[in-house]
């Protein structure tokens, strides 16, 4: 069962934002009154606020950092507090992609002390900084140190963008398992592109979150699935 606050952390490029956007849409589909806060003060491009229109159409309240999110200013929108103060919301917090980015969470420590939350560590086995269990553990601990919170679960989001195969997902599942044994943290989801979900049926022990890819590069924006498969040039 999801806690009221879902905090998404991990190394940039791991696919945190894609996961956060998909998770928020799923929570909304389940009928939850959902808010997504883009708290990324590290990455200037490929941000969840870029999907604001889609999210708002799905009834999700979108909160972005200062200047509509387009300036790289480490200032937080005070509207983020509404997620903590209005307990009718289920909140997804998309946190910037490294330990420094995770520091923004420390500002909400007094609120988090009174809250039930999940702090998910999004793991991509193909990212060199988190490619082994030892490196992933060091990264996880650095994030925990900076944000002054403990992670509660692991999300296997192993991919190679357009070159992803089901084998990549399984490789990530093995790494997540290893990290899970080292930390005692459960693997909460395997985030899997929806076209690989059938192929992986029965091969993943934990829950699967089927991913729709929203965070596209400009040349990937097409209208058909067939074209989507032609991305890689």
């Amino acid at each position: 069962m999801n806690k009221r606050i879902q905090i998404i952390t991990g190394h940039y490029g791991s696919g945190k934002t894609e996961f956060a956007v998909n998770l928020a849409l799923r929570l909304a589909q389940e009928g939850k009154k959902t808010a997504l806060a883009d708290l990324d003060i590290v990455n200037p491009y490929f941000r969840s606020f870029e999907q604001a229109a889609r999210l708002e159409n799905a009834g999700i309240k979108v909160i972005v950092t200062s200047c509509g999110g387009v300036a790289d200013i480490p200032a937080l929108n005070p509207a983020v507090l509404s997620i903590f103060q209005d307990r009718s919301y289920t909140g997804v917090l998309d946190i910037g992609g490294d330990p420094i980015g995770a520091r923004v969470l420390a500002r909400f420590a007094p609120y988090l002390a009174k809250e039930e939350f999940d702090l998910l560590f999004v793991l991509n086995a193909n990212r060199p900084e988190t490619g082994t269990a030892e490196k992933a553990l060091a990264y996880l601990r650095a994030i925990e140190f900076e944000c002054k919170q403990k992670a509660t679960g692991i999300v296997n989001n192993t991919h190679l963008c357009a070159q992803t195969t089901p084998e990549e997902v399984l490789k990530g599942a093995a790494l997540a398992q290893e990290l899970s044994e080292m930390t005692g943290l459960p693997t909460v989801y395997h985030a899997v592109h929806r076209r690989f979900v059938p192929a992986l049926q029965g091969q993943l022990a934990e829950a699967v979150l089927p991913l729709e890819i929203y965070m596209k590069k400009p040349w990937e924006i097409t209208n058909s699935e067939e074209e989507e498969l032609l991305w890689q040039d």
């Binding site: 490029g13 990455n43 200037p44 491009y45 490929f46 193909n126 190679l160 963008c161 590069k217």
Partner: peptide, 10 residues
């Protein structure tokens, strides 16, 4: 262009 700096690829 900034996209090359910011995007992810295999």
């Amino acid at each position: 262009d900034g996209m090359i700096g910011q995007m992810m690829e295999a």
